[in-house]
Design a protein around this nucleic acid. Structure first.
Lengths: 151, 151
DNA sequence: ACATATTCCTACCGAGAGAGTAGGATTTGT
DNA sequence: ACAAATCCTACTCTCTCGGTAGGAATATGT
């Protein structure tokens, strides 16, 4: 498994906020309640999103969080990368290039690099808007049984 | 990170054995030495490959391991799946379908399912032979700088 | 002014997985 | 008989994941 609860919850939060739209700030307790997640744990995750500039926040009464931009301007890659730190499928591939002394002679490295690219490419191609609009075709591609068959 | 050392070493072993070809059995100590890995740890990994039927083994003097089939008949997916148990990028997607009580209403599930498929598809498309032949084009696709540009 | 609702910040903790180690039993070729 | 190999079981250490706890700072309604 590559994506932990941190990244999954983060995405869930972003989706939730995207759904609430521009109707003011949404409080942490609201989000935790509607998603049925621990408020304290969610707090630490939202902190990452907030510090990363993905959210706007307001303290005090009637405060809360809201998206900093339009849902279509967030890629899933961006959200997960921020919360997870890396999405590399293996240790020998780090963000910002390869970090292994055997890299030059490693015959499996191209495989890992290719896998990494495939993942990154997929996640960069999907936005928050795709999720809230339920764009199954884009997410599931040819594997979507309820979509029109691509030809 | 989705693939641990177990899966990576397993793949390395398979590549090593594929290179040695049909020239008899290769001993564990030979493999460990040429890859500069702990023999004891490698032993536990090879045991998985062996029990999974990917290898043939011979005990006693001059014994060792060799591939059970032709390199082109192993997909990377098969090798990693056996050693890692699962390659799902998230917990809510298990092998053999979805396992989450919120699945019916989860708006992020199609994303994870799509990601899972993309990964599986990539790994099923590459064989052990591709690795030992250094088929960079297949592994890296459009990201391969040393390949002919695809058009 | 004050109570209240909220974000913000630091620290802590338990369980489980990852990454190996250790020691020996068993099998086979010479 | 001996050496070289696989096979098997159990153990250990460390780190990350997933979460908890307690309080400080800040804004708002009355």
């Amino acid at each position: 498994m590559m994506v932990s609860t941190k990244g999954r919850y983060a995405l869930t939060v972003m989706v939730e906020l995207a759904r609430k739209g521009e109707n003011g700030y949404v409080s942490l307790s609201d989000i935790a309640e509607s998603e049925n997640l621990s408020m304290k744990y969610l707090e630490s995750i939202i902190a990452i999103l907030n510090k990363g500039g993905l959210l706007k926040s307001l303290r005090g009464k009637n405060g809360g969080y809201m998206l900093a931009r339009d849902p279509k301007d967030y890629t899933i890659n961006e959200i997960l990368l921020l919360t997870e730190g890396t999405l590399a499928p293996v240790n020998c591939i780090m963000q910002e290039g390869v970090q292994c002394e055997k890299a030059a002679t490693c015959s499996t490295l191209p495989l890992w690099a290719g896998l990494d690219k495939v993942i990154e490419n997929y996640l960069k191609g999907i936005t928050l808007e795709d999720i809230i609009k339920g764009n199954r075709k884009k997410m599931l591609g040819d594997y979507c049984e309820s979509c029109e068959p691509a030809k």
